[in-house]
């Protein structure tokens, strides 16, 4: 699971109001190379929750993203490459996603989060 996917998932348990972002419990991280596309990144920059991406990348062992950003940074190739790496190339392969409100654990196995709910959570 890429951090781009993590950036849109939220806890889907009934009654939870602050389900985003899901915390990550990390067992194994995998890196896969992806073609660099600056236009895509500029477009995504406006949509991404930056703090969630920074925290997510730190959880996966990548500490290069700045905590604070502004759109002028999109001119910097160096910044775009870091953003690219964090958003698209890091994968949570084994571990779990944790609901920030209830602590409920959604296991991630072979990169696939299991977000199925129990009967009493629907």
């Amino acid at each position: 699971m890429r951090l781009l996917t993590h950036n849109m998932l939220s806890s889907n348990i009934k009654g939870v109001t602050n389900g985003f972002p899901l915390r990550m419990e990390v067992g194994k991280v995998v890196e896969k190379t992806v073609d660099f596309n600056a236009d895509f990144l500029r477009n995504m920059f406006a949509k991404v929750e930056w703090n969630a991406l920074v925290e997510g990348s730190k959880a996966l062992g990548y500490f290069e993203l700045p905590d604070n950003v502004e759109s002028s940074m999109l001119e910097s190739d160096e910044f775009l490459h870091k953003f690219h790496h964090a958003l698209l190339e890091l994968h949570l392969e084994q571990g779990a996603l944790i609901c920030p409100e209830t602590g409920r654990r959604f296991p991630v196995s072979k990169g696939i989060p299991n977000m199925l709910l129990h009967e009493d959570e629907v």
Partner: peptide, 10 residues
């Protein structure tokens, strides 16, 4: 992602 589409919250 394994999820029931009816319970999807993105």
């Amino acid at each position: 992602i394994q999820c029931d589409i009816r319970h999807l919250r993105w």
